[in-house]
Design a protein around this nucleic acid. Structure first.
Length: 969
RNA sequence: GGGCGCUUAGCUCAGGGGUAGAGCACCUGGUUUACACCCAGGGGGUCGGGGGUUCGAAACCCUCAGCGCCCACCA
């Protein structure tokens, strides 16, 4: 088995470029492994994304109907969100198909569907039973707008203009005051202490005394706490508001005697504890508090300050640290020292059961888990898995004791799959069911129990994804076969939120890690290095790209930019709907600041494009504009992929046009016994053995690169082989042979190599490869290297290529390289002197190297590709009159240019070249004169330098000879 | 403040102790059937600055600067 579970996209909206990247790479892996013969499963699905989805739908309802969720009620809102989910899930799955994702579609799951719900319930129950889930009063990030707690990761910090006020409290039983500063004066209402550093001489005498908070007329102690108070900051004295500040809360835990007072209502107004400020919004209360303190003469000063303020990512409103009752999962180790959830997950990575690619990302994973912070899992939302706990709070101790007896001795013990906890402090009983059976409910309700109104954090269901989708807790055959999964492909920002928690859940529920490899891919940024987002208008819709350039182009370009170290910048442009010109997006266009762009046309196009028409740039517009057509957003970079797909298609077309009389036959070649000598029994000419050698090398490289998740390298290897070797050289050489007597052989090799290319490119470019494959099935049904076989119906199920290692043939590769040198030399000369391509040239070759150019085999190709009429080769340097030389190491190419050039100009050019060569020679010579170099450098490097002296001297002699000849002329 | 990454051609990026690479853009020439989304050729770089290790550094080490991301903190 080879298994990947998709990181389920949120049903909040359409797929973006990040999804395209993420899913393309997964599809490459799945298609490749499938071809390798693995039983490959790619599990698709979507995520209900609690807060995000509910917020989107609530916003929509508010906009269109002017109603809040409270107007609709829980049931109706959830119904509306389901409708939204159905719409966007279909859209997302459709987009994945457009992208070419080869998921097992019939297995599609949703994190809120019954199968996943069952797993959530089972896990929650198990954790509840094991004492890993507990009720706690904790400071949470409170979003007063959405009236929910949000996780740390759902907040962001932004520098905001704020104030910094200094006040003083009168010390009781003394005429002293103690001064302190705050950015949130309203929290004074909840102060329960004033804190100084224990060694701060200014305040030492005050420790143990108390001060009066005048606004609420409450006496609070002056305490010493070295962790909270920093004598070097501000006045050195801090007010302590445990219920509304994380540090103060920590201080309270160290000094519980000071007490804790919550002053806020869930909607952000002041509650009963705020005395006369009750009911005021927190910001109104702030002003009132400042004014009152000033009236009391306790105001000391104010300055404007830019302060980092925490915001809710969902509502974009400031977070209030807020004390509330929440459910938590315990992450730390057990009381008896046994490893807890976090420790288990750390071990799995430290001992290599789970490996990160690139490896450095395991640091973020381990660092985060090492903190072992308890995980707040309750969310004050309606969209999600409802917390399966029923609670009852008793009015007094007697009732509570009675309930305990009743529950423990009575009905509750008779119901098997129930866990029961009692909270002595709050006189509350909590009951958790495993099965949601109706009879339990009515019993519970009769007893006055009520289900918790909250839902679980989205990640609670996401963490089960690798096994819940396979049917856990049922012992399904799929689960047994496909779990643990093979590779998780995801982005680095959810290593902690998701990856770590999946490892935890996998180990906890099944005792096995959820995946072996975690591949972390780079991010796509816009042309300014900023993350793409719909709101900024700098993002690209993958569907636009598919329509403009094609899905294969999108996929190839994605693979090509998926490097190990770097995020990838993608300069974005608007494609003018009138003329197709790509107009670059500028920074000032972002955030919908520009509603209309006049197309400047493209003066560099051939022929130049004049446009001047207006359009609306692409972006998150609410609807179409009746006045202006909206541009699609594109990026030049995708042309690379599009051009490559076309190149492959055209090469395939050419080959298939020339398959008349094709007959399949096995290709055999025995390796050459020594360089330059053909292998015994091998009827294949040099160029065929060369391309097969290159194909073998390419196949080996691509396989290794995919094994190491080096997608960019794999894409590059394929691009270079297909374009620069197969198309530029082999196909060109084949053209003559297709008309000659060895047509049958060249057809077989062409078809065989094309067949391999189509297989190799298929994981990255499924569409063009499938098209060529089926066309090839018409033209050459039996094919393949080395032994032709009837082709599979689809390339998707064809075997991944693998060729004998001894097909690698360095001798053939060297010979071809030499031939290419000659051809390039002649072409260069032609271009330099502007000699028309069909004008035949005379060629004189001088070669001293042991691996000679196999002229008998490759000579005709030199003539064909370089337009050479007469060729001489030999050890003696011929010095033709009026010849330009092209000199490569060990090899010199002379082209007879009699009557074709201006001797004076040529002398000038050659003299310049001569100067450069002499300088080079000098450099090498001085290097060799350096005793340290000769002593310390590896011998082969010294030899290389010596050889290059000989070579340079030869070149210089040749150039000098040429100059002399030209002068005589 | 802690951690990670990046800085190489006009742009986007590979590479990596021994003569600097690709695609796009640019320049020159080319359209007698695979491909102008093309072919052939060319110009263009003190590899962010400064130190060090080395016979030799773009690469390894230190340091500085700039950019980006993650985590923590800021009465």
């Amino acid at each position: 088995p080879y298994t990947i579970v998709i990181p389920p996209p949120n049903v909040t909206g359409a797929l973006h470029m990040g999804h395209a990247l993420n899913n393309t790479l997964q599809d490459v892996l799945i298609r490749w492994r499938r071809m390798q013969g693995y039983n490959a499963l790619w599990m698709p699905g979507t995520d209900h994304a609690g807060i995000a989805t509910q917020a989107v739908v609530e916003r929509l309802i508010l906009q269109t109907e002017k109603k809040t969720r409270h107007d609709l009620g829980r049931e109706e809102l959830v119904k509306r969100i389901w409708a939204w989910k159905d719409k966007y899930e279909a859209r997302i799955l459709g987009q994945l198909r457009q992208l070419g994702a080869s998921c097992d579609w019939e297995r599609t799951r949703f994190t809120l569907d019954p199968i996943c719900a069952r797993a959530v319930r089972e896990t929650f129950f198990k954790m509840f039973k094991d004492g890993l889930i507990f009720r706690g009063k904790r400071l949470v990030n409170w979003d007063a707008h959405l009236q929910t707690s949000v996780a740390d990761d759902e907040t962001y910090t932004e520098d905001t203009k704020g104030g910094f006020w200094t006040f003083k409290y009168p010390v009781k039983g003394s005429d002293e005051f103690i001064r302190f500063s705050t950015t949130r004066p309203e929290t004074m209402l909840g102060d329960t202490a004033v804190c100084v550093h224990p060694s701060d001489e200014r305040y030492k005498h005050l420790i143990g005394k108390s001060v009066t908070v005048p606004l609420v007329n409450r006496d609070i102690p002056i305490i010493a706490d070295a962790l909270l108070a920093d004598p070097t900051l501000g006045t050195g004295c801090v007010k302590v508001t445990p219920a509304h500040d994380p540090n103060d809360y920590a201080c309270y835990n160290r000094n519980p005697q000071i007490g804790i007072i919550n002053i806020l209502n869930p909607d952000g107004t002041i509650n009963d504890n705020g005395g006369k400020y009750k009911g005021l919004d927190r910001y109104k209360a702030r002003e009132a508090v400042i004014a009152d303190m000033e009236a009391l003469g306790l105001f000391e000063g104010h300055e404007e300050r830019v302060i980092p303020l925490k915001y809710s990512d969902r509502s974009k409103t400031p977070i209030e640290p807020y004390l509330s009752d929440q459910w938590f999962v315990k992450m730390g180790d057990h009381a008896d020292g046994k490893p807890g959830l976090a420790r288990m997950a750390m071990d799995a990575v430290e001992n290599g059961q789970v490996r990160f690619f690139p490896e450095r990302y395991k640091n973020s994973y381990l660092d985060w888990l090492a903190e072992k912070r308890d995980w707040c899992i309750s969310r004050q939302l309606w969209w999600g898995h409802r917390i399966p706990v029923w609670s009852k709070t008793c009015a007094n101790r007697a009732d509570f004791d009675a309930l305990m007896v009743e529950c423990l001795d009575g009905w509750i013990n008779s119901l098997g799959k129930i866990v029961f906890t009692a909270d002595e402090k709050t006189l509350t009983a909590h009951v958790c069911f495993l099965d949601e059976q109706h009879e339990y409910m009515s019993v519970m309700e009769k007893q006055g129990f009520q289900q918790d109104p909250d839902v679980l954090d989205t990640w609670f269901s996401s963490m089960l994804w690798p096994h819940s989708t396979l049917g856990w807790p049922e012992k399904t055959p799929e689960l047994a076969y496909y779990y643990p999964t093979s590779t998780l492909v995801t982005s680095r920002d959810i290593i902690t939120l998701w990856v770590a928690r999946m490892v935890i859940a996998g180990l906890y529920n099944l005792g096995q890690v959820p995946f072996r490899d975690v591949y972390i891919h780079p991010k796509m940024l816009d042309g300014f290095g900023e993350t793409m987002s719909k709101m900024k208008g700098n993002g690209i819709d993958p569907v636009d790209i598919i329509e403009l350039y094609g899905a294969d182009a999108l996929r190839f370009t994605i693979a090509q930019v998926a490097t190990e170290t770097q995020d990838s910048r993608l300069p974005v442009g608007n494609v003018c709907p009138h003329c197709g010109t790509l107009v670059p997006v500028k920074k000032e266009h972002m955030y919908l600041r520009t509603k209309k762009i006049i197309c400047p046309g493209d003066p560099n196009a051939k022929p130049p494009v004049v446009c001047g028409k207006a359009f609306r740039p692409g972006g998150p517009w609410p609807g179409p504009d009746p006045e202006l057509p909206t541009a699609k957003q594109g990026a030049e970079k995708f042309e690379l992929g599009r051009n490559f797909a076309n190149k492959i298609w055209n090469a395939a077309r050419f080959i298939m046009m020339n398959l008349d009389g094709y007959t399949p036959q096995a290709i055999t070649l025995t390796p050459s016994p020594s360089p330059g000598v053909p292998g015994e029994g091998s009827g294949l000419p040099t160029e065929d053995r060369w391309i097969l050698s290159r194909l073998t090398a390419t196949t080996q490289a691509v396989t290794e690169q995919l094994e190491g998740y080096r997608f960019s390298d794999a894409a590059r290897t394929l691009y270079d082989f297909i374009w620069s070797e197969f198309c530029d050289w082999y196909v060109e050489m084949a053209k003559g042979r297709l008309k000659a007597s060895d047509k049958a052989t060249v057809q077989r090799v062409l078809v065989g190599v094309l067949d391999a290319i189509v297989r190799l490119i298929h994981p990255i470019m499924p569409f063009v490869s499938e098209s060529i494959w089926s066309a090839l099935n018409e033209a050459a049904f039996e094919r393949g290297l080395p032994n032709p076989e009837p082709a599979t119906e689809s390339v998707m199920i064809a075997a991944w290529p693998e060729f004998p290692a001894d097909w690698r043939d360095p001798a053939m590769e060297a010979s071809l390289a030499r031939m290419q040198e000659v051809v390039r030399s002649v072409r260069e000369v032609r271009n330099r002197y502007n000699i028309e391509p069909r004008k035949p040239l005379e060629l004189h070759l001088h070669c001293e190297c042991p691996v000679a150019l196999d002229l008998a085999q490759l000579g005709p190709f030199i003539s064909q590709l370089a337009g050479v009429s007469k060729m001489e080769a030999g050890p003696a340097v011929t010095k033709p009159e009026q010849a330009a030389s092209h000199v490569t190491p060990e090899f010199q190419v002379y082209v007879s240019l009699k009557g074709l050039i201006d001797p004076a100009a040529e002398v000038k050019r050659l003299e310049k070249q001569l100067g450069e060569k002499r300088k080079q020679l000098q450099g090498v010579q001085s290097k060799l004169e350096n005793a340290n170099f000769v002593k310390n450098a590896p011998p082969e490097i010294v030899e290389q330098q010596k050889a290059s002296i000989v070579d340079l001297q030869k070149q210089i002699a040749a150039i000098e000879g040429n100059i002399a000849d030209l002068r005589t002329e």
